[in-house]
Design a protein around this nucleic acid. Structure first.
Lengths: 239, 239
DNA sequence: CGGGTGGTTGAGCTTTCTCAAATAGAGTGG
DNA sequence: CCACTCTATTTGAGAAAGCTCAACCACCCG
């Protein structure tokens, strides 16, 4: 059940058999959700964190004037809200973008881990820090990159992230978002995203259609995005 | 020495005398830096984290084309890179924006804490998660807020953060940044920041001059910014 | 076949950027 | 104390990226 999550962690550090068992033992129920459902509301007291097994989720914030910014995308193997273990409530809600399957991990079990498995604790801590690294890189995109570079950068990032959990065939991966939702990730309007996608397609860099991203020219896309995977911490190191 | 950091933590949870002692015992040398110096370079192996005692620091990323985005501002009492404890290297460098005084906290000491003080560990973990919440809110600003709302939002956030560590007199706090650096935080050009600051001043909302922010009309500023302090987790709760 | 959602395109507009120049201020050496 | 220099701030004018509004198309599903 937590196979994809283990893939993600083991790409960054060794996980012992005992640690793996502790992690497996921490998982409680499996819960499914339809698409377009807020599954973790903001400011509610939480007693468990949620691991994403299948589907696509996003953290977002709605502004008073009706605009929405998606601040993070979660793919299978990601915790949606491991940070809720210490935060106790979320400042930003999490919604399903497609149909999803999740596994609940009670905070009580995580607390046991912090008492008995210091190294595993650090690995879980690492994984929330990795989320923060991705947030910072998104800030760079939103603050400084052009529309086309932002889209290219996101496609590069996701190619790597899907690759880690074995969900890409090398040149394409599932991304069942509407152009409106993609615009909400990129800080653009859907109209402009449409034009940007057209340009990426016409320049032979990447294609977004049918709920799927296809990388047509990785090096070209990396160049347009000014993409550097450093921030994804793809090396194994003792954490 | 770690008084301001304790203020910050104790605003969010109880810290026992033993935990306080463990934290005090973790601090090693004090180091001073001049302004405008990169003090933690990207991708270097790190063996300690750094606590900011005095001054202003920022995490940033330079793009190929010469643009810079500042992704976080650190004020006294903040860890600059507590996340380096699990990341082992930083994806984004940290620089001093003013003259600064810091205290080094060896990772070995933090590791001891994770072995012996699970609750304190969770509090430190919380504090990196809080950084991430701020990152997400910055993403919202960069992605969706207008230039004036972005500036107003940052001024609101910093008023609260300086307030927690007792460095505001209620209406003003030190912020010794150039307009260029402020622009690098806000994802704008310095020319436009200048015009935005003028508008905030003329509308009687806030003033930025002489290395200091003065809030002239808190409610008005909050309205312009669409500011909600939820994401700063100002409540005490068992973490 | 019809309704609904999402994608595509065009035209004009707004925000913010770029380029350029003028002004202000802080620090330095004479 | 004054000229000089350097950096930061301020303002103006024109350009560009991306937004808004509107229409039309394509596809899916009942």
């Amino acid at each position: 059940m937590i196979e994809l999550h283990l893939l993600k962690l083991r790409a960054r550090d060794e996980i012992s058999a005992e640690e793996e068992a502790a992690l497996r033992g921490a998982v409680a129920d499996v819960v499914d959700y339809p698409a377009d459902r807020t599954i973790i509301e903001a400011n509610r007291d939480l007693t468990h964190s949620t691991l994403l097994l299948e589907g696509l989720m996003g953290r977002y914030k709605d502004l008073r004037d009706g605009q929405r910014q998606i601040t993070a995308l979660h793919i299978p193997g990601d915790f949606l809200d491991l940070h809720s273990f210490t935060l106790k409530r979320l400042d930003q809600p999490v919604m399903s973008l497609t149909r999803c399957r999740t596994a609940l991990v009670p905070h009580a079990k995580l607390e046991e881990i912090t008492r008995n498995f210091p190294h595993l604790t650090r690995i879980l801590w690492f994984s929330t820090n990795l989320d923060a690294c991705i947030h910072r890189e998104w800030s760079v995109s939103l603050g400084r990159r052009t529309a086309i570079a932002r889209a290219a950068h996101l496609f590069c990032e996701l190619q790597i992230r899907f690759g880690i959990v074995g969900l890409t065939d090398g040149t394409s991966y599932p991304l069942n978002l509407t152009q409106i939702e993609l615009a909400e990730c990129l800080g653009l309007t859907s109209v402009h995203v449409n034009r940007v996608l057209k340009e990426l397609r016409e320049r032979g860099l990447a294609e977004f259609r049918g709920g799927k991203v296809t990388i047509l020219d990785w090096d070209g896309l990396v160049r347009v995005a000014d993409f550097d995977s450093n921030y994804l911490y793809l090396e194994r190191a003792p954490r």
